[in-house]
């Protein structure tokens, strides 16, 4: 009996041991010279190695421009191989949309290429990068092995960046982290929105300066003459659905936090608030609500709590 059990245990453990830490990255062409590596809309896990993010690249006449580098060194290396299978042009520039770990921890694989980001992104990554990388090790485990923070080497500003035959309009925004780069490729009409747009995946707020800032950013982005929008997470769209969903979701969050604070709700009660049925398709909404309440509710509370101390009579 005991022997049977041991055999069973060994059998069960074998596939675990053999599981390879391999990112299967298949670039999908979404526009002329434009490829997307679409991540899942799940949370970080030991199963997905943090491949939950959208990374894209553009093949211009001057070489390849990469937008974000993924969650780990191993991902970055796989990404570089995947790009090589599609294009034989050299990599000329990496553009980072913002400093969050799933977008920048693949930088090591591109350390021979200029890595460009907004000044604020560099600052935030220098300040928070190591702690975020540490947390990623905790969340996805061995996939992160050898991953270290590599800071951007070039600073971007709002304006037009011409690379070969592509004209990229850069927008310096901030609703998601305080320093968020959106890239509108005027040549193809593709808008790379970074994490200012989440689609069918709940948005995250650990560094957000405020939901109102975010809503203003969305207005600017939506007004651009884009034909295709690439969200930081979730499926690409040729229509305004991701914008509609973002506005709806941000509006709901803002209203929930404001009303709750005005009613004197405790944080635990807001975390347990019902999530409207129309967001049922939005992955991880309950999980992210718990996080967002922690990040943002204290600011809404402050507006409701005037100073009341007074010396003893």
């Amino acid at each position: 009996m005991l022997r049977c059990l041991i055999t069973l245990l060994v059998l069960c453990a074998a596939p675990l041991q053999a599981a390879e830490l391999v990112y299967r990255l298949e670039p999908r062409q979404i526009a002329a010279g434009t490829w997307l590596l679409e991540g899942s809309t799940d949370n970080f896990s030991e199963q997905n190695g943090g491949d939950i993010v959208n990374v894209a690249f553009i093949e211009t006449s001057a070489g390849v421009v990469l937008i974000d580098t993924g969650p780990s060194r191993r991902y970055g290396e796989a990404l570089r191989q995947a790009i090589g299978k599609v294009s034989d042009k050299p990599l000329v520039r990496v553009l980072l949309t913002h400093h969050h770990p799933d977008h920048v921890l693949g930088n090591q694989a591109f350390s021979d290429v200029p890595i460009a980001a907004l000044a604020g992104t560099r600052e935030l990554l220098a300040e928070q990068g190591d702690a975020m990388a540490e947390n990623m090790y905790r969340l996805v485990g061995d996939w992160m092995r050898g991953t270290e923070v590599v800071l951007p080497t070039e600073t971007l500003e709002e304006g037009v960046l011409e690379i070969g035959d592509h004209r990229l309009r850069l927008l310096a925004l901030g609703g998601h982290t305080g320093a968020d780069l959106a890239i509108f490729d005027e040549t193809t009409g593709v808008l790379f929105a970074g994490d200012l747009v989440f689609h069918e995946r709940a948005l995250t707020t650990p560094n957000s300066p405020g939901l109102d800032v975010w809503l203003n950013d969305l207005e600017r982005l939506q007004a651009l003459p884009w034909k295709l929008v690439v969200p930081g997470h979730g499926p690409v769209a040729g229509d305004a659905a991701p914008f509609a969903q973002m506005r709806d979701y941000l509006g709901w969050l803002d209203g929930l936090l404001r009303d709750s604070a005005a009613r004197g709700a405790e944080m635990t009660e807001v975390i347990a608030a019902p999530i409207p049925e129309r967001f049922a398709r939005v992955s991880l909404s309950r999980y992210e609500l718990t996080r967002t309440v922690t990040h943002l509710y204290p600011r809404y509370e402050r507006e409701q709590l005037p100073r009341v101390d007074s010396p003893a009579p």
Partner: peptide, 16 residues
């Protein structure tokens, strides 16, 4: 005893 399922900020965990 209401607590969130996880501590997003371990320095400020709400309980009720």
């Amino acid at each position: 005893l209401e607590v969130p399922p996880f501590a997003e900020d371990a320095r400020q965990v709400p309980i009720r």
